[in-house]
Design a binder for these strands. Structure first.
Lengths: 107, 107
DNA sequence: TATTTGCGTAACCCAAACGTTACATATACA
DNA sequence: TGTATATGTAACGTTTGGGTTACGCAAATA
């Protein structure tokens, strides 16, 4: 169940971002991830939970193992938020351009 | 002085994101911002400090007032990080496409 | 069936985050 | 010059976050 925790909050921790980077290489089980960091397996388990609930990773159970891979949903949510500000910068540039054009005319 | 705090960490707080949204409308002083939220002025002052150090806002002093406006630097830093994963999705799609092409050939 | 393996979670600790109030300081204004 | 205003910051309390160890359970394996 995806309780949809804030993806921004999930991305705030550098360790979790490192996990995501690692998962971009290939899907990995909880234990494998823990093996590549110097934190305990339960700690990884919690991080994965946060990332999952934020829609940043998917989990596919296979027997007693849980394979984690990236989930675009959370990423898109963040990107969408950033896009709003892109719009802001564009209109700001447009305003600047308009201003320059106007100055050129009145000169 | 920009101590360059992690912009991800800065964006984790919903209140700070709300401040950024508000600043996308127009530049505002600390007091004005505080007036639009139900947190105290010192709290806003601290939030702005975090946003500033993360490169998400610029500050222009005007007498005793400090006008805050958006700074693209922090946003770009986050966007750049996300772009890496976009690359991941693209190659994933490419692999899928290759696989389908291959199946088509061997059929 | 007995044992090993992969995992989730509870209980706990410590540090960081976020809020507040109470100051100090600098600028504007009377 | 005296007062009001805009702000930063220190000190403090409470909550949240991230780590650990200890445990329980289900799936694989002997």
């Amino acid at each position: 169940m995806r309780t949809n925790t804030d993806p921004f909050q999930a991305l705030a921790d550098p360790g979790r971002r490192a996990i995501l980077m690692m998962l971009s290489q290939n899907r990995q089980s909880i234990n494998t991830i823990a093996g590549n960091f110097d934190i305990s397996r339960p700690a990884v388990s919690k991080h994965i939970k946060v990332l999952y609930e934020a829609g940043l990773v998917q989990i596919k159970d296979s027997g007693r193992e849980r394979y984690c891979e990236l989930n675009p949903d959370g990423f898109n949510e963040v990107k969408k938020w950033l896009d709003y500000f892109d719009q802001f910068w564009r209109t700001k540039l447009q305003n600047l351009e308009d201003l320059l054009n106007q100055q050129h005319k009145t000169k």
